[in-house]
């Protein structure tokens, strides 16, 4: 039996500034899928993720999450979703405090049992007592991914999570997220400007240009036979914006 979609967006419009607005007539994100969100800088990827996370509300239109209107104030629904931000901020506390933050707010008692394996997997174990503000940019990014994964979300929203990482750590992050997806069956929306990464990780890919959803299709079609000329140009690395 088909599971109902996780997200349904209908006629969503979000005015971000006088010069930029996001407009999506229809977008459905199925349960268990990994949607790669690609597009140039400023295309609206982060805005869309913030709408999906409930951090921002659309100016008009409707977003439903598991069939219910996504209002952003239903804490139980919000706790089924976790987001990794492009520029992660840490609390002025230890690495352990930060990675376990999402568990503590949920009153999870066995926080350490979940955080220790994640710290180990991400290579952060030796830094566990270090002040999180003293970490390097790459370590911060790894910690941000870890703190989102330990809460075992049903939906994971990723906003350029590997932007500050070296190739080895990019591979590590992709592996760790892949393992967690395998284990938990998460639905993932992964914003990236790296087409190779989208090809490696996503089952479906959407192209955003200037706040408009140009094309959304399965990975093979997106790269091999896209229907929109702008998608073809984008895949071929031509300037389309």
């Amino acid at each position: 039996m088909n599971r109902p979609p996780v997200y349904e967006l209908d006629a969503v419009y979000k005015k971000q500034s006088d010069s930029f607005s996001l407009e999506i007539s229809r977008l459905v994100i199925a349960s268990g899928e990994t949607l790669g969100l690609v597009g140039p800088t400023g295309a609206g990827k982060s805005t869309l993720l913030r709408l999906l996370s409930g951090l921002e509300m659309p100016s008009s239109g409707a977003i439903s999450l598991w069939g219910h209107r996504h209002e952003g104030n239903n804490i139980e629904s919000l706790r089924r979703v976790a987001m990794v931000h492009q520029r992660p901020l840490m609390l002025s506390e230890s690495v352990r405090y930060n990675i376990e933050y999402g568990l503590h707010v949920r009153r999870v008692k066995s926080a350490q049992q979940r955080s220790d394996p994640m710290l180990e997997r991400l290579g952060l174990s030796r830094l566990v007592n270090q002040d999180a503000r003293t970490l390097s940019g790459g370590q911060l990014q790894l910690l941000a991914i870890g703190r989102a994964l330990v809460v075992e979300p049903e939906v994971l929203l990723l906003d350029e999570p590997t932007a500050h990482l070296d190739p080895a750590n990019v591979a590590l992050v992709e592996d760790v997220i892949g393992e967690q997806k395998q284990r938990l069956g998460m639905t993932i929306v992964w914003a990236t400007h790296n087409l190779f990464q989208a090809r490696r990780t996503a089952s479906k890919i959407a192209l955003l240009l200037s706040g408009r959803l140009i094309e959304i299709t399965d990975r093979e079609t997106f790269f091999d036979s896209p229907s929109d000329e702008r998608t073809k140009d984008f895949v071929q690395g031509k300037m389309v914006y």
Binding site: R87, L89, G102, V105, A148
Partner: peptide, 15 residues
């Protein structure tokens, strides 16, 4: 306190 921090904490499940 950085303006983005509240949003990041909310997206980790904080009330």
């Amino acid at each position: 306190v950085p303006a983005e921090l509240p949003g990041q904490l909310r997206s980790l499940g904080a009330t």
